[in-house]
Every structure is written in C-alpha cells, then in structure tokens.
Simulated assay, not measured.
Amino acid sequence: MGLTADPAFTTTSFVVIDFEATTPKGHPAQPIEVAALALRHRHGDWEETGRSTSLICPPAFAPVTPLTTAQSGLTAEQFKHAPTPAVALGALDARFATGRRYLLVAQHAATEAGLIHRQREHCPNLARLNFIDTIPLAKHLIPGLPDYRLDTLLTHFAIPMPPDRHRALADVEVTAQVFFRLIAAADHDPQLSDLAALEKVAGRTAKSNLPAQGGLFDLETPSNPSYQPEP
C-alpha cells in the first residue's frame, strides 16, 4: 500500500499556504499578503476544496518599500484600504471547521510558521496546525539538486514560472504543483508508505503545539493537533 492509499492521508486536507512580508529593521517580518489553497486526495487525484487570498495592511513601522515593490510588484498605494492582520487572518481562520484533519504545506515552512505564530492571537486555529515542508521532502526524494529553492524545483519539474512570482496566490499555486509531484514520487518510496512516515521526513510542528520548555528547540514531532478545523 502506497502513501496515497493510507486512510490517514486521504482523510487529511492539505492547505498550501504562503505569505508575502516586509522585513523592517529591528522587527520580525510582518505579513502583507496571504494565500491558502485547500486540497484533498480522492479517488487517485487531487481535488481543490477551497482557496483564499488577501492583502494585509502592514503596521506603520513596516511600510511597503521600493524593495518590496521590486520583488512582488505590490505598492504602498494598494494597501490604503487593505484589511488589518486581525481582519484578514481572522477571516482565514474562520474557514477552518472543527473535526477535520489538516496539515499545512509550505516551501521553507519555518518562514510561514514564524509569521503565523507571531500573529496567533488573530488566527488561533491556524496556529495549531502542523506543516509539511516541501524542502526536506524534496531533499529526500530528489537528492543531488544544486539547491532546493522554489525556482529550482519549478525548473526540475518543468513547471512554468508564473508571471506574478512572489505574489502569495501565484506562489501557493506553483508550490501545490511541486507538492503534487513530490507526493507522486513518494507513492513509490517504501520509506514513505503512510502519512506518519511523510510527517517524520518532512513534518514541522507548529510552535503553538510545542511544550513550553521546548521553545529553544526545533522539534519535528509529526503529530496533528487534536483540534483540526476545515477551510
């Protein structure tokens, strides 16, 4: 039985998530855009079950800079009427419902995990969800690449580069394409025969699920949180 035949895998919603952020001097990164794409693997194929995207108004100490504009195309003008983090992340958080099993999926999940944890008062459900990180999964399945950046993986899998690369929704969509190909490869890997094995290789525990005394350690306990909402 391969990974995608595991009942735990087929009953899990995988939510690919990406943030764009500003990085003000002397402060942690501040989110300015978020996108999420919810997916289930059913009957041998992937099915989209929901998506969400929103700009997020940055705080005054973390304005959109020319560097941010050069990378993402986002300008300060676009944020004049953008929702606050409380509104934008609260709306996303409300799309998760009790009783469903979720895992977040991200490219370099430490970045997304850190942003979510710092905003956890606005998205407590989201903050309790663990991650699958595409980087360690790709390292396990396709060793020997020069690096494991998203652009490198897109090239490796011949996935077209989106014209709006570095916008949250575009990055979520291509990360999902990378994830699909990695899972297809994992289905033939005897070391990744079920969801627990996948989490052991590529899982990252949400900081909100770590024991308080473990805050200095980067644990990779792959268990899902007991409260697992649905978008």
Rank of each mutant, 00 (worst) to 15 (best):
Ala62Trp: 02
Pro63Met: 05
Pro63Ile: 06
Thr65Cys: 05
Thr65Val: 07
Pro66Trp: 02
Thr69Asp: 04
Gln71Arg: 10
Gln71His: 12
Gln71Lys: 10
Gly73Ile: 08
Leu74Asn: 01
Leu74Phe: 12
Leu74His: 03
Thr75Trp: 05
Gln78Asp: 01
Phe79Gln: 03
His81Lys: 10
Ala82Gln: 00
Thr84Gly: 09
Pro85Phe: 02
Ala88Pro: 05
Leu89His: 02
Asp93Gly: 07
Phe96Thr: 01
Ala97Phe: 11
Ala97Thr: 14
Thr98Pro: 10
Thr98Glu: 13
Gly99Pro: 08
Gly99Glu: 07
Val105Ser: 04
Gln107Pro: 14
Ala110Ile: 10
Ala110Gln: 09
Glu112Lys: 06
Glu112Arg: 07
Glu112Ser: 09
Leu115Tyr: 00
His117Asp: 08
Arg118Glu: 09
Arg118Pro: 07
His122Thr: 07
His122Ile: 07
Pro124Arg: 03
Pro124His: 11
Ala127Lys: 01
Ala127Gln: 01
Arg128Cys: 09
Phe131Asp: 03
Ile132Gly: 01
Asp133Glu: 09
Asp133Val: 14
Asp133Pro: 13
Pro136Leu: 06
Pro136Asn: 04
Pro136Arg: 04
Ala138Tyr: 00
Ala138Cys: 15
Lys139Thr: 15
Leu141Phe: 04
Ile142His: 10
Pro146Trp: 01
Asp147Lys: 12
Tyr148His: 11
Tyr148Trp: 06
Leu150Ala: 11
Leu150Cys: 13
Asp151Glu: 15
Thr152Arg: 13
Leu154Lys: 05
Thr155Ile: 15
Thr155Lys: 14
His156Met: 12
Phe157Lys: 06
Ala158Met: 14
Ile159Val: 15
Ile159Glu: 00
Pro160Thr: 10
Pro160Gly: 11
Pro163Ala: 08
Asp164Arg: 14
